[in-house]
Design a binder for these strands. Sequence first.
DNA 1: TTTGTAATTAAGAATCATTCCAGTTTACAA
DNA 2: TTGTAAACTGGAATGATTCTTAATTACAAA
Lengths: 138, 138
Amino acid sequence: MKTSIIKKMREKGLKLTPQRLAIIEVLVDKTHLHPGASLIYREAMKKVGSLSLSTVYSTLNEFSRHGIIKMLEFDKMENRYEGNIMEHINLVCKGCNKIMDYKVPVSIDLKEVAKKARFWVTDTRLEYHGYCQECKGK
Amino acid sequence: MKTSIIKKMREKGLKLTPQRLAIIEVLVDKTHLHPGASLIYREAMKKVGSLSLSTVYSTLNEFSRHGIIKMLEFDKMENRYEGNIMEHINLVCKGCNKIMDYKVPVSIDLKEVAKKARFWVTDTRLEYHGYCQECKGK
DNA sequence: TTTGTAATTAAGAATCATTCCAGTTTACAA
DNA sequence: TTGTAAACTGGAATGATTCTTAATTACAAA
């Protein structure tokens, strides 16, 4: 997954810096956590001595702009990032903010949407919000 | 729709104030725009002389907490609100921020999700982001 | 109708994730 | 080795939303 991200970067003409390498490694290691910018910053900082939070943000923006990673946007909660670009539903726990992937491919044809609604889909956001096992019992 | 919102308020024991009435009316009149807090504030202000932005926020929070309206949360963009609680997909245009409803009921059984993933769904967020007809041609 | 009180409103200060800015450094192609 | 566009930095700025505290009010019960 790390190699494939780097490969995609090269394809897009993005430069590989120590900072970006560290960010990618955190993104891969902690992918199941769907980490936010601050966690990525903290962890990547341990790997490279020099890193600024602005860099983390601009890098994550750059990557998601190129479709290399996916940005999960929230309002009350820090944005989160994931390397898994396959379409799936994110289960977002309101109790602990944990995010889990739920692999039920939603089969709505994007071309059908484009045709019927005259809308060109670039990006899907499928989330179920609620409570996980642990948080269910308050 | 206005009456049904007020009815739901009464059921939940929420009080009907002039400010809330104005907010509800804007929510109903401009529902197709999926208005944000600032628009709701501006429009409702025209109806009642006295209204503060804090009130708009707390009212919208209260209503959505009780499931009377639905809050659409974004990151880069102001949150938006809708009276339509039927499950549907929101088509969000990246060009002009217009939001349209796409009435394709997604048939994923919430009970199935709860059982398989052990996750209790309270709230669904189904969005397709992209470009509408007008914004397609830049 | 009057009253009590819990709910609501108000205004501004505070928050905080994210973006912007302007200057410096660096990756990498030639 | 060098030139240059891209990337990095840290601090300031942004802006939607929440918080705080005090004043006001809807409405149920007397």
